[in-house]
Amino acid sequence: MNSDGPLKVDIWSDYVCPFCYLQLAIIDQLQQEYGSRITVQWHAFELRPEPLATLDPSADYLRATWRQAVYPMAQKRKVLMKLPPVQPRSRNVLEAAAFAKVHGKFEAFHKEAFRAFFEFGRDIGDILELLEVGSRAGLDRQALNSALSKHHYTDQIVADEGLADELGLRAVPAFLIRRADQPLSEATVMNGTMGIGPFKREIDRLCA
């Protein structure tokens, strides 16, 4: 992850959002193309925090969304994914990602968590499953377990979500692009899954 670029890309996403996963390769492309010119910062956004009900994995509307939107886009982007048999809450996995960021393993954990859910249908709301994901990403299992059990990163998740609310972000993925000297309130907001073109046009405009 870049840390010193003149342009900032702040991203709010959730690990149970298929469209966030589908957009991951586009962000990778941006980072490869622009290198140190952009700084990418990921933020937490729980789609269904307590007390909201989680989705029913067998619901007709969910299957229809995957059939009509998710699968066609995944095929087009050559992303391997399938409708997970579980629909967990995402607070634990978001806290695990925050832990991974502090310990220099965010990129690895980020991708492993998405793959665990959307490729293998694992319950990424379960701490034991997250310990497996963390181990694959190179994290210390015992330290991660302690952090999750004691909710060391809850405040950080709540802060990310509070900032999203202040900025009027209501859905993910959400991308805020700005110059490093601009506040988030002045960033260009881009929502949803899209190709690399719109991002490049905005970044090039800001670089001009």
Rank of each mutant, 00 (worst) to 15 (best):
L176H: 10
P84T: 04
Q41M: 11
F199D: 01
T65Q: 10
Q142P: 00
F109S: 06
A108N: 10
R122H: 12
K101Y: 15
A147Y: 03
L47Q: 04
F19T: 03
A137F: 00
E186Q: 15
G168Q: 04
R136H: 12
A25L: 00
S149A: 12
P173L: 08
Q31A: 14
A53Q: 13
I124R: 01
W12K: 02
A44G: 09
Q68C: 00
V93E: 05
L52M: 15
N191V: 13
K82D: 15
Q31C: 11
A53H: 07
K82R: 14
S146V: 09
A174L: 05
L7C: 00
P72Q: 05
E186W: 10
A208F: 08
Q29Y: 08
A208T: 08
L184W: 13
G195L: 06
S185P: 05
P173Y: 07
H152C: 02
D10N: 02
A171C: 02
V133G: 01
R170C: 04
T188Q: 15
A143S: 10
V40H: 07
A74T: 03
R201I: 12
E95W: 04
L139W: 01
C20I: 03
R201W: 05
V102S: 11
Y21L: 06
D181R: 07
D160L: 12
N2P: 09
D4V: 01
Q142A: 14
H103K: 09
Q32T: 12
C207D: 10
F114A: 04
R37H: 12
A96K: 04
L55P: 09
V79F: 14
T193G: 05
S13W: 02
A116D: 09
D10M: 00
L169W: 05
M190Y: 13
P51W: 10
R37K: 15
L148V: 00
R201C: 01
G5S: 07
A159S: 11
P183L: 11
L167V: 04
Q32I: 04
C17V: 02
G134Q: 01
A59N: 09
L139Y: 02
E33H: 13
H110P: 08
I127P: 03
Q68I: 06
N145M: 05
W66K: 00
G125A: 03
T154D: 14
Q31F: 06
G197W: 09
S13T: 04
K8R: 14
G134H: 02
G197L: 13
E202W: 05
F199C: 09
R63T: 11
E95M: 15
P85K: 07
Y71L: 10
W66R: 00
D14W: 02
L94Q: 14
K105P: 00
K78C: 03
R67L: 13
K8D: 13
F99V: 01
R179M: 12
K200M: 12
G162R: 03
H103P: 11
I26S: 12
I26W: 03
F199G: 01
E107L: 11
I27M: 08
T54S: 08
E95K: 08
D126Y: 02
L131K: 07
R67A: 15
A113I: 03
A74S: 10
R178G: 03
K82L: 06
V93M: 05
V93N: 03
A174F: 14
G104A: 14
Q182E: 15
A108E: 14
T193W: 08
F175D: 01
R63K: 15
S146P: 00
F19P: 07
A59T: 09
T154L: 14
G35H: 08
